[in-house]
Design a protein around this nucleic acid. Structure first.
Lengths: 350, 350
DNA sequence: CGCACAATTGAGAGTTATCAATTGCGGTGG
DNA sequence: CCACCGCAATTGATAACTCTCAATTGTGCG
């Protein structure tokens, strides 16, 4: 049920409006002068305000002007309903931000249509702009294609292998969108050991956590092969997120997914054997980087990288790989790893 | 620079409008008939549309009606600028959702004021409703007090020690807000070992990750002491987040912070000695649960819990605690732990 | 061919987990 | 008031696992 606040000094006119609106099933509140009207608006937050222009204590224009200074009231439409038919008055009302200006005499249907139109407009606007209103509806089909074309016109940087993209502790100025290549995000502990906490390839965003948290980067990112990355300026990112609820939802979901994935990894790191962790890393890499067009999936990654992903040392990792090799779970050719028996790897993790 | 699309068939009138608006530094686009106008609007997404009513191929009302069916166009204000001065026409235009209706003849200043007023209105609205527009401004002072009063009227459940609150794999129906007590979130690995991945006390939210991701819970939560928790139904949560950008920002920040914290914990779990992990856990617990009103901070927590927090076994944890005890870093009285030398703990972590 | 660097292997040390045994403590019933 | 039960905390001995440091082998490339 929508609510309407009526501000009208003349009791006869007021009663007529009340009657019409109540018949149409609106929740109706009334105020008899400008001051009362403003106060009730602030208190009750109606869905719409109908106000006369000529009012004791504070006129309709004054009410509107005051309301426009309150951020939480801006979205409430105000319709002037008055005997002032001078063009000058009408223009002034509209320029102050009125949603409509109806001159007397008006018919019941004119009033109802105007009220309904404004409420509907707000409702449509809300559904469109409000974050998460569509959280369950939003689909991300063909996301990559759409985003690629969107960001191709932006600044595109090329990074060589081992080049840093951003560094822990710095302030974020851009959102990064990977067009091609592979990038790792890692953290270093006090002994100088790296743990890879994220991997990105074509179609992934990077750096949004720091932007959304409004804080410094908490990880460092580096290209692990030659990569092309589109840079979206911070302001544009916020603009994008602000105006497109589907994009906001996208990032919220990414954050939530990251969270779950990290929690699962924490359990692994805490309690699982190296064997399990390596198995899990291999499966993760296959899942992340497998190109579906080839039938074979061959991993060309140096041992230190792989160790950092598994949270161990190069030597321990190599021993585990040798084990897998003797067990015919993987084959190693010139350092390149091919998964021969995926099911055995999966079985290890139960 | 704001952009305006002008739809007007009469070239003389059109040129006059273009001149006025260009002088006022607007980016101006023009269309000479209704079809062209609609197409340009869809393509260019101007900040405002000025349209005549009587147009070839598709009249102004038709354009507006079509635009109102497109979610992305709803927020663009359309002003009718026409010689039709019939009340009926004016009402029809406004009822369709026009932002303003200006009748000829009009002055330059009337036009400019109307345009400016509408653009300003959209801008203000955007700043208010749009998510993250205020990301840098939003403060959360007295958050707990405000939220407590907000949620006190909701369903409040009491949980006894060791009672489950929600379980991994189930579907989220509520957002949980902790009024009092302490709760842990944990995950179990295949061998049945638990790792505590989150701790909550009064003023914390739980369960939002699953809600925002629109997926099942990925952790299990259990009260570690008697607790009171307000349940906010799923729909209300979405309503809240949709209508209050500051609340949306709050949850986004929570997600982002969790992410960073988990990444840091992962590095610890992967490479740091048990000693360091236990030191870090003790400091974390002090930070999380310290009541500022007492001068002493005493931890009453069973050894299994503490082990799950540190990612180790009960026995190993106890040995580490004994070491800390002999080194006079902590004291243990009837199982309760008091931190004697916080600086030594911090020094361990470098 | 030889250099530079990555990958692998080896041996031993260090850390943590496991399993079993013991101690400590609060509560209960005689 | 005291013995005893049940459970948590602690200690002990040993095994398992992973790391460290050093040495060796393999590979790509000029």
């Amino acid at each position: 049920m929508y609510s309407v606040l009526i501000i009208e000094a003349d009791s006869e006119k007021r009663e007529r409006i009340v009657t019409i609106l109540e018949l149409a099933s609106y929740q109706v509140w009334v105020a008899c002068d400008g001051k009362e009207g403003y106060e009730k608006a602030m208190e009750l937050h109606p869905d719409l305000i109908l106000s006369d222009v000529n009012l004791p204590t504070l006129d309709g224009f004054g009410i509107l002007k005051l309301l426009m200074t309150r951020p939480e009231m801006i979205s409430i439409p105000l319709i002037f309903l008055t005997g002032n038919v001078e063009r000058e008055d009408i223009r002034r009302g509209m320029e102050l931000g009125a949603a409509d200006y109806i001159t007397e005499p008006y018919t019941e249907s004119e009033l109802l249509n105007a009220v309904e139109a404004q409420i509907e407009k707000v409702e449509r606007l809300k559904n469109h702009t409000s974050l998460l209103a569509n959280v369950n509806r939003t689909q991300f089909n063909n996301r990559k294609e759409k985003l690629d074309t969107l960001f191709k016109h932006k600044i595109v940087n090329k990074y060589k292998k081992n080049q840093y993209i951003f560094t822990e502790g710095n302030h974020p100025l851009y959102l990064f969108y990977v067009l091609s290549g592979k990038i790792k995000a890692f953290k270093t502990n006090e002994d100088g050991k790296d743990l890879t906490v994220g991997l990105y390839n074509a179609g992934d965003f990077m750096g949004y956590t720091a932007l959304l948290e409004d804080d410094k980067y908490s990880v460092t990112t580096m290209a692990i092969e030659a990569s092309e990355i589109a840079l979206i300026p911070r302001e544009e990112f916020f603009e994008l997120v602000s105006n497109h609820s589907s994009i906001a939802i996208l990032f919220i979901r990414l954050l939530a997914k990251n969270n779950n994935h990290k929690a699962a990894q924490m359990v692994q790191l805490a309690y699982d054997s190296l064997r399990k962790r390596v198995a899990s890393t291999l499966l993760f890499l296959k899942d992340k980087f497998d190109k579906q067009d080839k039938d074979k999936f061959i991993l060309d990654i140096n041992r230190t990288e792989l160790a950092n992903l598994s949270g161990t040392t190069k030597e321990s990792l190599i021993r585990t790989l040798s084990d897998f090799h003797t067990e015919k779970i993987i084959s190693i050719d010139h350092g390149k790893i091919e998964i021969l028996d995926e099911s055995k790897l999966k079985y290890m993790l139960n």
